[in-house]
Amino acid sequence: MSNSSSVEIGKQRAAHQAVDDYINSECKVVGIGSGSTVVYAVERILQRPELKDIIYVPTSFQSKLLIVEGGLTMGSIEQYPDIDVTIDGADEVDSQLNVIKGGGACQFQEKLVAEAAKKFVIIADYRKKSSQLGTEWTKGVPVEVVPIAYKSVMKSIENLSQKPLKSTLRMAINKAGPVVTDNGNFVIDAHFGGIEDPAQLLREMKLLTGVYEVGLFCNMAEIAYFGEADGSVNTLTL
C-alpha cells in the first residue's frame, strides 16, 4: 500500500469514527464543514439510515453540494442557529486544540457554524498536527477582508504585536485575479512563522477595520481525530 493510500484510509477512518462517536439519531441539527476529510464524514452519514432525518447545515459551497447530492436535508444557520455538533476539517491543529482554517477560503461560514454548535469536532490527517500553529501549515493565517480594505489591512497587520514575516493577497489559480470567497471578499495569507499566542493574535486581527474573519479557531474544538500514516486513528482532547 502506498503512503498516500494509507493516509486516505486514515482520513476515512478518522471521519467515520468521529461521526459514529458524535452523531446519532438524537441529534436534530448537524454542521458539515469543508475539506477533503469531510467528504468521508458525509460518506459515513449516508451509510447510517437513522441519520437521514437530521438537518445538515453547510459551511461552504462544497459542503452544500455534499449535502444535496447525498439526498440529505439541508438547513441554514439563519433557520437553525442552535447546532448539536459540527464536524469540520483543519489546516493545522496544535497541542491545545487551537486550529488554523481557511485554506479553502471558507473560514467565515466555518466559524459561524462551529460557534453555533454545542460540540465542535475536528477531523484531519496526521500531517495537520503540530506543537505550535504556523510550524506545519506554512501558507499563512487566512484573513478574509472586504475587497476595498485589503491594502490597508495588510499595512495594519505589520503593526501587530507579533510581526508577520510577510502578507500576501491570495490569487486564483485558474483565473486572473484574487481568490473571491463565498461572501464576495478577498483573502490575505499572513505568514507569522510559529504563533506564540494564537488567541491574542486573533483578538488583534479581528479589531482591524476591514477584516471580515480570521482563520484562527481558538478554544473552540472539543476533540480532534487524526488519521495516521499507517491508517490508524488517534485523538486529541484537553
Rank of each mutant, 00 (worst) to 15 (best):
S95M: 06
G103I: 07
T86I: 11
Q107M: 13
A90P: 07
I195N: 09
G103R: 10
V93G: 09
F108K: 10
F108P: 03
E115D: 13
T181E: 06
E204I: 06
W137V: 09
G89Y: 08
A105Y: 15
P198W: 02
A114V: 05
D197P: 10
S95H: 13
L169W: 10
G184D: 00
Q200L: 10
M205C: 06
S76D: 13
Q162F: 01
D125I: 08
G194W: 02
Y150P: 00
M205P: 06
G75L: 00
A117Y: 07
G193S: 08
E144V: 02
A114H: 07
K111H: 11
I173A: 15
V99E: 12
G140M: 01
G71D: 06
Q132R: 14
P198G: 10
M154T: 03
Q200R: 12
G140K: 11
P142D: 01
F108C: 04
I87V: 14
S131F: 03
K129G: 02
M154I: 03
S130L: 05
M154N: 07
L208I: 15
Q107F: 10
G194N: 13
G134M: 08
P142Y: 02
I195D: 11
M154C: 08
S131H: 13
T209L: 11
A190K: 09
D88Q: 01
F108G: 00
V180I: 14
N183W: 15
Q200P: 04
T168Y: 03
I77N: 05
S161A: 07
K128S: 00
N159F: 14
K206T: 02
S131V: 07
A90M: 06
N98V: 03
A176D: 14
K155T: 09
E158A: 11
I188G: 05
E204F: 14
R127P: 05
V187A: 04
L208H: 02
M74E: 08
L207A: 11
G193R: 15
A199P: 05
G102Q: 10
E110Q: 07
E158S: 07
F108N: 02
Q132H: 11
L160N: 12
N159R: 14
K119T: 06
A124N: 06
L165H: 04
S130F: 04
V143K: 12
L201T: 12
V141D: 04
S161Q: 10
E115N: 12
I77Y: 05
K155P: 08
K175C: 00
V85G: 08
L112P: 00
W137F: 10
I195C: 09
M154G: 10
V93M: 09
L112F: 03
M154F: 00
K129S: 02
K163G: 01
W137P: 07
I87Y: 11
Q107V: 04
T135W: 00
V145C: 10
L208T: 12
P178G: 05
Y126T: 05
P81T: 13
G134K: 13
K151H: 06
V99K: 12
Y80R: 13
E158V: 13
A176R: 15
S95A: 08
G140Y: 00
Y150R: 05
D82K: 15
S76K: 15
R127I: 01
V146T: 07
G104V: 04
P178H: 12
Y126S: 05
L201Y: 09
V145S: 08
D94T: 09
T138F: 01
L208M: 12
V113N: 10
S76F: 08
L97E: 05
Q79S: 11
R203E: 01
Y80M: 04
